[in-house]
Design a protein around this nucleic acid. Structure first.
Length: 445
RNA sequence: GUGGCUGUAGCUCAGUUGGCUAGAGCAUCAGAUUGUGGCUAUGAGGGUCGGGGGUUCAAGUCCCCUCAGCCACCCCA
């Protein structure tokens, strides 16, 4: 008799399992995002994980094409796994916009795949939480994008964060004045590293990689020296874009957005005009957003996005401008963990009913049903093990309450509701549809 | 894709210039008069030392390859 050949249980590089203790906060975050998106009228959509390869390739840089998971399906078709949610949105919009009408607001929370080198907080399979408004150039949509980010961050539980706002037209205005517009992609990508490598190295790289003169580099870097109130920065920008109509328009647009955000009641310290953020992606054409945590600036932006014109030009003649942003779910979760914002809970239920008295299973099941009907999560322990073991189980999983009812309790019509955190228990009547238990639990919320 | 660092139990690690059946803490499970968890002692399970090859009388330890993780570049969420 030979031992059966065991297969080593393992996951692919850059792919992960999620245990309950990480999945519970993850789902909570996703639920919060959905709630906020929906509160602004964004509707959910979904698209296939697999697309025809031609849909996905050639949309970003060479780099993104290289990172695309691609293969031939069983029918001999060349297919690829979606790399982000924006390209599928473009295809989706080109295909369905006739039925949807504009403006169209959607959110899309789904998994995407990129075959790049994994690092901390970077994986080959990860989730994006996008929301976008397409079919309008209105500044209202730009304002609303910032408001969604703001509300979302607050709903998640952050008070110390800042949304950094910029406009590509301002950047392009500066480049136009310096006659550098033809190299904007390279220059902006370099500028985007400012927070990481500092102005001196950015200047070096601008001269080396984009062939700029030292004067040109320092002109561009003046953007980074602008600090202060929104009005201060906006007026300081004027000379930097002098003579550029694009730049003028960008400034006008930026001030319109800032004014709108303020009118909606957002504390102005939450929105910072940072005309040095550029975002690496070429397709942004207007407002750009990045969101940083005051307490963890080095983890980078946790919610980013911007305006792009001509989203679906590759697929349709219809003119579809849009704006949107994406919550960096994994980055945010690791940040929250670092800040101690995540409770170590391994159960979604509130109460564990101990299976105490072997004869009383049906009473336990009936009681559980009553509590569930009141919206309380309840687990009935499956085995009539000794109470200590069941309480230990409740403790380790993070149940907030244990409900203890043996023959003694049933005889008196009462049960013990034990608060696992404090260790104290209160007696609750079992009569009247367990009303007493329900108020004791819900009153605690 | 390029470069650097790392890889011993589920987790954090020890393991002397290569030398007998590879250890600890935490975690897990079991039991300590079968009605009360977190603390305390007790016991048990769990490792082909990431995998493969080589050098050697002898490899967790040295060499090569490979896989995986971390860091930087690149890019990005």
């Amino acid at each position: 008799m030979s031992q059966p050949q065991r297969i080593q249980p393992r996951t692919l590089k850059g792919f992960r399992d999620y245990l309950p203790e990480s999945m519970i906060p993850r789902e909570a975050l996703i639920d919060t995002a959905k709630r906020i998106y929906r509160s602004y009228g964004f509707s959910p959509i979904d698209t296939p994980a697999l697309e025809y390869l031609e849909i996905l390739t050639g949309k970003g840089s060479e780099e993104t094409d290289r990172q695309l998971y691609r293969f031939e399906d069983n029918g001999g078709r060349q297919v690829g796994m979606r790399f982000d949610l924006t390209v599928p949105l473009a295809r989706f919009a080109a295909q369905h916009i006739g039925q949807l009408g504009v403006p169209f607001k959607r959110y899309h929370i789904a998994t995407v795949w990129r075959g790049e080198a994994p690092q901390r907080g970077r994986f080959r399979e990860f989730m994006q939480c996008d929301f976008d408004t397409i079919g309008t150039r209105s500044a209202t949509a730009d304002i609303e994008t910032a408001l969604v980010i703001h509300d979302l961050m607050q709903a998640i539980g952050f008070s110390r964060f800042a949304i950094r706002l910029n406009h590509r037209m301002v950047l392009n205005g500066v480049l136009e004045r310096l006659d550098l517009l033809d190299r904007s992609t390279q220059i902006l990508r370099t500028l985007d590293k400012l927070g990481k490598i500092g102005p001196a190295k950015v200047a070096d790289e601008m001269m080396a990689a984009a062939g700029m003169t030292g004067d040109q580099a320092s002109e561009v870097l003046k953007l980074a020296d602008l600090h202060g109130s929104h009005d201060t920065i906006l007026s300081a920008l004027e000379p930097l874009v002098a003579g550029s109509q694009i730049g003028q328009e960008g400034i006008a647009r930026l001030s319109e957005i800032v004014a709108g955000i303020r009118a909606a009641g957002v504390d102005s310290s939450r929105v910072i005009l940072d005309v040095s953020i550029a975002r690496g992606l070429d397709y942004y054409t207007g407002a750009i957003y990045e969101t940083f945590l005051d307490d963890l600036p080095k983890i980078g932006s946790v919610c980013s996005g911007g305006r792009y014109d001509n989203l679906a030009g590759m697929y349709t003649n219809q003119d579809l401008p849009g704006i949107g942003a994406s919550l960096g779910l994994d980055r945010l979760l690791s940040g929250m963990e670092e800040l101690g914002m995540i409770q170590p809970v391994r159960t979604p239920a509130d109460v564990l009913i101990a299976y105490f008295d072997r004869q009383r299973l049906h009473e336990y099941l009936a009681l559980a049903a009553k509590l569930r009907a009141a919206g309380i999560g309840v687990e009935v322990y499956p085995d009539a093990k000794k109470l200590a073991a069941q309480l230990k189980y409740a403790d380790q999983r993070g149940f907030r309450f244990a409900l203890i009812a043996g023959s003694r309790e049933f005889e008196s019509g009462m049960c013990q509701l034990k608060d696992m955190q404090t260790g104290t228990s209160i007696d609750c009547s079992l009569d009247d549809d367990a009303r007493a238990i329900i108020t004791a639990i819900c009153g605690d919320r």
